[in-house]
Amino acid sequence: MVDPKQSPRHLTERPLKRKSRSGSMNIGEFLFNVCNYGLLAFFGLVTILPFWHVFVVSITSYQSYLNNKFIMFPVDISFSSYGVLLSDPKIHRSFLITVFIVMASTLLHLAITAITAYPLSRSYLKGRNAMMLFIIITMLFSGGLIPHYLLIKYLGLLNNILVYIIPGAFSGFSAILMLNFFKQIPDSLEEAARIDGAGHLYILVNIFIPLSMPIISTLALFYGVGKWNDWFTAVIFVDKASLYPIQNILREFLILGNMDTIGKGMFESDSYKLIINIKMAIIMVATLPIILVYPFMQKHFVKGVLLGSIKQ
């Protein structure tokens, strides 16, 4: 804000700026704003309309959909496609499996990240640089798909729910973000606790973790969303459909076109016509949880960019 005690230059500048912005807006300025707002609104609409259409079709009766395929507002609302999904045990199971995977793997990820980041953030620990190198090498180079596949196979994790949770729980990127956060916590807190006789684990759990909630929630949200969206693990390591997370059920149904994955026996006589609505409903089921946590993620976006851009 403008400090009244600031140099006179500032005082003469302010009114000038205001005038040019709103007071006498010339025609060029006006046209620029129309184009700018218009184009941004257009880009926003192109982004959101497909999802909106999916949502509308998912709650519309099949008959109304046939009458107007460009439907953009729900008429003749019908939840029958959600009814089909809800009564399908495969959908139940995969939804529950996915929720379990997200929660268990995020917890494990946070625990192992915090416990590794803590010692690495202590400047007096000898051998820190060697350990950092040990971590960074794994961020730069990997064995690739086939050796990874064989490893999982030798570990007996094929067709095992643990394959979603255990491999990948430790990531160098998360550890480095967390240890940089730990470094900002004043050393005096650790020293005081040490003098009082507290052990390192106690200090980590009772002092560092409560003070690091901003980075912990960022990591949890981004890792959790990544797990919710993970479909590749099941494609390579799981061929039992009973262990499929929701993304893979959707993949079978929408992308590979295996209709019998869902609603087997539901499609008697004319109810097979529900197919397009069911497709849209299952997209909604897989997307809604993301949309629900989305508002909570917004304040973590800038850190999330860091996480995402270095992960690629």
Partner: peptide, 21 residues
Amino acid sequence: LMLLPGVIYLIIFSYAPMYGI
């Protein structure tokens, strides 16, 4: 000791596949 879980993870899930090369 606190570094151990991370080290074990990296050895199994990152360095072992590198041997697989």
